[in-house]
Computed example of a mutant assay.
Amino acid sequence: MTASAPPRAASAPPAKRRQPIAPYLLIAPAIGILLVALAYPVGWQFVTSVHTYGLAQQFGQPPVFVGPANYARLFTDPAVWSVVLRSLVFCLVNAAITVVVGVLLALLMKVVPAAPRLILQIALLLAWAMPVIAAMTVWIWLFDWRRGVINWLLTSAGFGFTHHNWLAEPLSFYLVATIIVVWMSVPFVAFSVYAGLTQISEEVIEAAQLDGAGGVGRFIWITVPMIRPVLMIVMLLQIIWDLRVFAQIKMLQDADAPISSTDLLGTYIYRVGVGSSDFGMASALSVFVLALTIVLSSFYVRQLIKEDS
């Protein structure tokens, strides 16, 4: 009689892989600083948005709690929604143009020799480093309707632009604003995308070229997928920045432009708060802009998380 084989021991369940805590410890101080820096201003904005806070409160009178009344005014005021619509269109159009021009300049920097590339990079750095006030002073002078260089050049070329006021009509006003905002934002996009392009292996591009892929095909099917995380980040940042644009619009308005038809969210909040001393309504608008920014950014954040995983 043969002895039976000893029973096999049950296989142990695979041990769970421990998540390293070092990355969380490294990022914790930055998150803590952000929370401390943002908690008070955001909290103050929200508390003020549910109170009547005007000129009397600045002289010592206590604010009056009104609950959601400021938000009710916000959502039922046609003027506010007109500003919101203008801001969204301006934001999305400018962000798209900035990214397209920035990508084209990055591709140009990738293919030109060293000397032209260095000149282009220096020019972009100078445009990026120029203070907003100084740059706006130059741009306003260029588009001045009395003695501006743009009108002089167009008139010299045979177009009838003598004493044409670019800032008098909303459409031409936003055209000028778009040129200025894109000019100030393109360097960041161009340098970011160029850094991404330098990380693409030349062997991959050469293999695609040997397989018969043309320049456009290589860009669409190889370059774009490999730099997609960079494109997503710069597009997200541009949407956030262009939605909150203020200094350029305010200075163009101060240069004899119609205010009510050229207001964007930043200048409108400033006019309601500082101009009309209605800080409760201005705070409600600020909270609304924060929520709008989160909504616009959520799609790109989800895509970034998906790319990372």
Rank of each mutant, 00 (worst) to 15 (best):
A127T: 08
A79V: 15
G275L: 04
I305V: 15
I200E: 07
M130G: 03
V103E: 10
I119A: 14
L290G: 04
W183L: 06
P113D: 13
P41Q: 02
E202V: 14
R73M: 07
Q121F: 11
A127L: 15
R218K: 12
V112W: 09
I227P: 11
I119Q: 05
L35A: 14
M130H: 08
Y270Q: 10
F90S: 00
F173H: 09
L197M: 04
I179S: 14
V83G: 03
R117H: 02
V36T: 12
R302Y: 08
D256M: 08
A207I: 05
I269Y: 07
A39S: 15
P229C: 06
E206K: 01
P116M: 10
V138E: 02
V99S: 06
I21R: 11
S11D: 07
T76H: 09
A284D: 08
A72K: 06
Y194E: 13
L26I: 15
P23T: 09
V274T: 06
M281Y: 15
G275I: 06
M1V: 09
V93E: 00
L85N: 09
L125A: 11
Y53M: 04
A208S: 09
P7C: 03
A284Q: 04
G54T: 12
T155Q: 08
D211C: 12
W145D: 12
G212R: 10
A30K: 02
V100R: 01
T198V: 14
L285I: 01
A37V: 07
P7I: 03
L292K: 00
A28Y: 01
V99E: 11
T293C: 14
D242H: 12
A127H: 03
P131A: 00
R117N: 09
R147V: 14
I21H: 08
I220F: 13
Q45N: 12
A39M: 13
I233Y: 05
V216P: 03
F161N: 05
L104G: 10
P41I: 01
V47C: 00
T223D: 00
E202H: 14
V176G: 01
T178M: 14
A10S: 10
Q238I: 04
V274I: 15
V84R: 02
L153P: 03
M130D: 03
V93G: 02
S298R: 09
